[in-house]
């Protein structure tokens, strides 16, 4: 449909967007997950393995991979989410590294040599899946669940007094995030036709969190805008080659200083909505 370059860029954008939401879900509730790349690896390997070895349709394989990742997030999330702040960040960071290390040593999926994937999906399928997920996420942002996430970030003690199951809501966000990352992994594996553990390094998790923080967590659009911006920005600086990542890093620092609440914040969205009856009638 497009040139290979544009196709590739759209896929990177789609993967980045899905990943951004995988980190955003817990982050909306104030919990930093620095292990999203690990869940991405689970989804990539699981989906690749199921479509390679059992001939499952790619969609089904990705779905099962996502459920498996969700299950891992659930089992590990129960103890890990007892921590918070810097401890939670470190615990999830370690978790991501452990998951990747497991695949690096798992002979059945090629260990350090990597794992070829035979099934192939094209760019439009990935783009449509991403749009579908975005619609689901938008609907989710209109629920009490999302409201509770925001409230828990504000004041977990008061949420608890309101009767909200704070820990369960946090756990659900963490699990959903793990499932989303796995979808991104499964899609990427079947687009690149290859999975290798080294590609799920810590930097992926950190960039994912950066997309979200720079886009903003106050609205459902923030992570999308952040991921899109940071997918295209390095491309803009491409002519600078070696310097582009330095410029990119300087830009991030400047941005955090000047706009700590992210690119898109709640008041901005309210102002945008106002002309269309944002002030609802009783």
């Amino acid at each position: 449909m497009f040139s290979g370059y544009i196709d590739g860029l759209i896929v990177i954008l789609a993967i980045n967007v899905i990943m951004a939401y995988s980190a955003a879900l817990p982050l909306v509730a104030g919990q930093l997950n620095l292990g999203t790349a690990g869940f991405m690896a689970v989804g990539a390997y699981m989906a690749a393995f199921l479509s390679n070895e059992y001939g499952l349709p790619i969609g089904v394989a990705i779905l099962v991979g996502s459920l498996a990742s969700g299950l891992i997030a659930l089992i590990i999330g129960i103890p890990v989410l007892r921590t918070s702040g810097i401890y939670l960040a470190l615990a999830t960071f370690a978790l991501g590294q452990i998951l990747v290390a497991v695949f690096l040593n798992l002979e059945i999926v090629g260990a350090a040599q990597g794992y070829p994937v035979y099934g192939y999906i094209e760019m439009p399928t990935i783009a449509l899946t991403t749009i579908g997920l975005l619609i689901l996420l938008f609907v989710l942002s209109q629920t009490r669940f999302w409201l509770y996430l925001t409230a828990i970030k504000n004041d977990p003690t008061v949420c608890d007094l309101f009767g909200i199951e704070v820990r369960n809501v946090q756990l659900a966000a963490f699990v959903l995030g793990g499932m989303l990352a796995a979808v991104a992994g499964g899609l990427q594996a079947h687009y690149l036709s290859y999975v290798e553990a080294q590609s799920f390094g810590a930097l992926i998790s950190i960039y994912t969190v950066l997309f979200v923080i720079l886009g903003g967590t106050q609205t459902v659009l923030g992570p999308l805008v952040g991921a899109a911006f940071f997918t295209f920005l390095p491309e803009v600086f491409r002519s600078g080659e070696e310097w582009r990542y330095a410029i990119f890093a300087a830009f991030i620092i400047g941005f955090m200083v000047l706009r700590p609440q992210g690119m898109i914040n709640a008041n901005m969205m309210r102002r945008l909505k106002a002309p269309f009856g944002g002030k609802a009638s009783a």
Binding site: V139, Q142, T143, R144, F145, G163, A280
Partner: peptide, 14 residues
């Protein structure tokens, strides 16, 4: 409370 209530997209239903 309950999951069904939690997942109602009431935000869209003014």
């Amino acid at each position: 409370s309950g999951v069904a209530n939690m997942l109602q997209p009431f935000g869209m239903l003014r």
